[in-house]
Design a protein around this nucleic acid. Sequence first.
DNA 1: TGACACCTGGGT
DNA 2: ACCCAGGTGTCA
Length: 281
Amino acid sequence: MPELPEVEHIRRTLSAKIVGSWVLRTRVERDDVIRGEIGVRDRGRALLRDGRISDVRRHGKRLAILVQDGRVLEFGLGMTGQFLLESPGGVPAERNHRHVIWYLGDRCGGMKQRLVWRDPRRFGGLTPLGDPETLNKACWGVLGPDALEIDEETLFDRLKKTQRALKTALLDQRLLAGVGNIYADEALHAAGIAPERRSHEVSRCEVGGLLKHVKRILREAVELGGSTIRDHKDPLLQSGAYQGRHAVYGRPGEPCQRCANVIRSNVVGGRTTHWCEACQI
DNA sequence: TGACACCTGGGT
DNA sequence: ACCCAGGTGTCA
């Protein structure tokens, strides 16, 4: 489900709703979604019980919830990971695959809302960490710069070091964090560069143009709540709207908006890839 | 670098 | 019944 825009939209939604809340209680329905070795005794602590939520952060496609005493929960959403925010009396719309639930509220007051971690395919998961340093270094330090933050020179230098197809490199989270299959295809089309071009042969000028489109497309997608292809819903069950702006993703056989040539699709680096042979060179 | 694995669900 | 899916990790 989630690339950078979807995760950033989720981050903003969560941040507005849960920062300042206390974690009153936690409930685990499936413990194999929790990564790392956590003793059963400490599991509630590891899941932030009795903490006051101070921040919700994102790097690339990854998300973290922090509490004031320094404990951290780090999330990878995989393909179908999802947060749900629910009011105490409300009946859940999604009843299955609800793996972890946090009951949030005031310090000594009643429960105000539930935060639910749902993930049907379970490619995602959460990792408890002891402190923000570990989050930034050991955990997120292995990822490349965030796609909204990286500068042209850094991206050019990193692409220069690999001969892989440009699209494959863009999907490598250690090279650049946040771009996935949809936005890689969209950015390459906007920049007029073929996905199979060798990364080290792309000129500085082309990388500059590509990066401008990457950032523009990601920012626009964030503002529209991301893309909803099949099942992406934000914590309030809202769908995204950026799928309406896709120029190539999911449109094989349709005419290219720029040159009217037929959009084709093929597998590049193991992922279905959509592009226009006529205007992407 | 590619094939395959991890899972469930939706569409044809 | 079969193919596909917004991701990532491991294997030869």
